[in-house]
């Protein structure tokens, strides 16, 4: 089946190997539904107009029971829904049986970003899952706080991400491109900002990306690296750079300022405070904000922390 890359009124473009099978079932149910809908709505509209009240009322003479008719409208729907059931179950099983040669990625969800660990390749990325096209990818997922759900509409896959166990899903991207990744299980203030991207690339680009990941290595200047990390590590979900307060305080003009903490003490935002706030965020929380930030311990390498500090420093009024 060639994937439908334009999408329909109801469905987004098909971008995984299973999307076509899901859509075929969707369209089957859609057409059957339209037929039934028309029977009922056109039927009732016709009856309503054809048999609208005349001047003189009469006794009802129509039959009030018909075994044949009632059997028909029991048996036909039964056949149709059980067809749908078996079809749905068949495709569902395919979604749950992971091909043997799949690339393994460990997914960690937390308020409010995704982090991806390529265990074999020893590579980590935040909010961006890069995969080669036409290769199955297995995701082993867990959450560090509440329940989240991993949803890529283009791939037609969704799986809850739970705090006390691992859940597994897989997909095989069929076209190169960049696809929206949503959290679809309500998880609080930043639920609708917990959006990532799945980037499907050619085999060569994938290998290149694996080698280059780490945001560009040692060469680029700290502030530039910090700016990259700000969006790549999902700081932007909660901290703006234009002064608007979000889930956390804005970075604009933050460095060097005096901030009142939730416990009443006052702290000057300096290098050490920023570093502590990245690695142990809930030690000192600015007054008026909730202590919801997860620790970035292990998600940032030494130079990236320095880079972020320099970047925040650069965002003066």
């Amino acid at each position: 089946m060639t994937p439908d890359t334009t999408g329909t009124l109801f469905l987004p473009p098909q971008s995984s190997t299973l999307a076509g099978e899901v859509d075929a079932l969707f369209n089957f149910v859609l057409y059957v539904s339209i037929v039934f809908f028309l029977i009922i709505v056109l039927g009732s509209a016709y009856f309503a107009l054809r048999y609208r009240k005349r001047r003189t009322e009469q006794l009802d003479t129509a039959p009030s029971h018909s075994a044949a008719l009632e059997l028909a409208w029991t048996i036909i729907p039964v056949i149709l829904v059980f067809t749908t059931f078996f079809w749905g179950f068949k495709v569902y099983l395919k979604m749950h049986i992971v091909p043997k040669d799949a690339i393994e990625v460990k997914v960690t969800a937390q308020k409010w970003f995704w982090s991806f660990d390529y265990t074999k390749e020893n590579v980590n990325s935040v909010n961006e899952l890069v995969v080669p096209v036409n290769k199955p990818v297995q995701l082993t997922m867990s959450s560090t706080d509440v329940i989240h759900s991993f949803y890529v509409p283009g791939f037609r896959i969704k799986m809850d991400v739970l705090p006390n166990r691992y859940t597994v899903t897989w997909f095989e991207a069929s076209n190169p491109g960049s696809y929206d990744l949503f959290c679809s299980e309500y998880c609080g203030s930043g639920h609708s900002e917990m959006i990532g991207k799945v980037r499907a690339v050619s085999d060569r680009d994938y290998k290149e990306w694996l080698d280059s990941v780490g945001l560009g290595g040692e060469e680029i200047p700290l502030i530039e690296l910090g700016a990259k990390a700000y969006s790549a590590k999902a700081c932007n979900t909660c901290h703006s750079i234009d002064g608007r307060p979000g889930i956390g305080p804005s970075f604009k003009g933050h460095f060097g300022s005096q901030q009142k903490m939730a416990d009443g003490t006052t702290v000057t935002v300096d290098e050490n405070y920023v570093r502590e706030s990245i690695l142990n965020p809930n030690a000192k929380v600015v007054q008026g904000y909730q202590s919801v930030m997860p620790s970035y311990q292990g998600l940032l390498k030494g130079r990236e922390i320095d880079a972020l500090i320099e970047y925040i420093k650069s965002l003066q009024e």
Binding site: E21, V22, L25, F26, V29, L30, V32, S33, F36, F37, I40, V41, S44, A48, V81, T84, F85, W87, G88, F89, K90, V91, Y92, M95, S149, Y151, P153, R156, I157, K158, M159, S184, E185
Partner: peptide
Amino acid sequence: LSFLFLFTIGGLTGIFLGALALNVHLHDT
């Protein structure tokens, strides 16, 4: 008559959600 019209749509779209493979895509949307 509104009920008949709307409930028919409500019921038929339940078929989409009951089908496992479609539910995966449509759940929580």
